[in-house]
Simulated assay, not measured.
Amino acid sequence: MCRLSNNLTGLFNLLTLLLSIPILITSIWLTKQSSTQCETWLQKPIIILSIFLIILSLCGFIGSCCGATWLLWLYLFVMYLLIVITFAFTVFVFVVTNKGAGEVVSNRGYKEYRLGDYSNWLQKRVNENETWERIRSCIQSGKLCEKFQTQFGNDTVQQFYQENLSALQSGCCKPSNDCNFTYHSPTVWNKTEGVVHSNPDCNVWDNDPNVLCFNCQSCKAGLLQNLKTDWKKVSIINIIFLIFLVIVYSIGCCAFRNNRARGWK
């Protein structure tokens, strides 16, 4: 195994390098083509990750195949940090996404979402004004509620109540069920004058297509529900990735010992 370790480490890093280059080029091209700041913001992490993988792959490839032991040592050190960070992030995701779920409402096909049901850390993030302004801009630029209105615009009130809405649709594009507003269309609801609502979202709701419930706590909760679902999927991928990293790291350690045994520096 140790005799093959240098070749295996070199091959793995060559493949990673060949995959990272087109990803980097595509990400840069998409950033140039982006029509909104939101799209550009989403592309930046991919660009940074691609550059990181290219540099790391070069260190591993040169270190294992060209006898540059110091580069292989640097590669293994970064790999070790990556393993620790991936493990810590996976644990963190499980902790912060443990709380929170949609609330089933009687005679409704959709669920309602409450911000207070989610972890304090997630609540704090979406309650930061600058962060929420950016997120809200992304949701609006994606025309979430325009598509929502088009999709369910012909529904009667009873038909609408039986629809299986997404967390964002339920939280951002319609008022809370607590408000008891009169249905006119999926994004137009008539308020009852003089009624005091216990749910503050009822006072925030506006039929203006640019306002709706984008400033509601339920909209933030809908986003967190989406985030929770996505992060749970990421956690499973992270566990597989972590196992893969440990295997590659072990092979790299073998290659490092080979280099030292051959007297390479």
Rank of each mutant, 00 (worst) to 15 (best):
N127D: 04
Q158P: 06
W231G: 09
E39G: 03
G67M: 01
T9Y: 11
C219V: 07
E193R: 03
M1N: 09
V234Y: 13
V78D: 11
D117K: 10
Q151A: 14
C38Y: 14
N226K: 10
A68P: 08
T90L: 08
V126K: 06
I21M: 07
R125D: 07
E112Q: 13
Q33G: 00
C145E: 01
S170L: 03
L74T: 07
I135L: 12
C213I: 09
I251A: 00
F160P: 02
Q140E: 12
V95P: 04
D206L: 05
I247T: 09
W264G: 07
G10I: 04
P186Q: 04
Y80V: 00
S5Y: 07
F160E: 01
E133M: 11
F61I: 05
N98V: 07
A221S: 09
H184P: 05
V91G: 06
P175Y: 02
I46Q: 11
T86C: 03
S198V: 10
Q123S: 07
D230W: 15
Y80A: 13
G252D: 10
I239E: 01
V96C: 03
V234R: 04
K228R: 11
L15Y: 07
N258M: 08
C65D: 10
N259L: 06
E39L: 12
V104M: 11
V84G: 02
S137Y: 09
I48M: 04
L74F: 10
F92W: 15
Q33A: 11
Q149T: 11
V211E: 14
F241C: 02
L212M: 13
L223S: 02
S57D: 12
L76K: 08
C2V: 01
K233A: 04
D201F: 00
N13K: 02
C145R: 03
N180R: 13
L74I: 06
Q159T: 06
N13V: 07
C254N: 00
K265H: 13
V157Y: 11
L144W: 03
Q217W: 12
Q159H: 03
G60F: 08
S198Q: 13
T150Y: 13
G222I: 05
C66F: 13
L223W: 15
C202V: 04
G263P: 02
C254K: 00
T192F: 08
D206S: 08
L53W: 03
S250W: 14
T187Y: 01
L212W: 12
I236W: 15
N6Q: 15
S34I: 14
K228T: 06
E128V: 00
K174F: 02
G194I: 10
G67H: 00
F214T: 06
R257Y: 13
N180F: 10
N164H: 12
R134D: 06
A255D: 01
I251S: 01
Y110C: 01
R260I: 05
N199P: 02
G109R: 13
L17P: 03
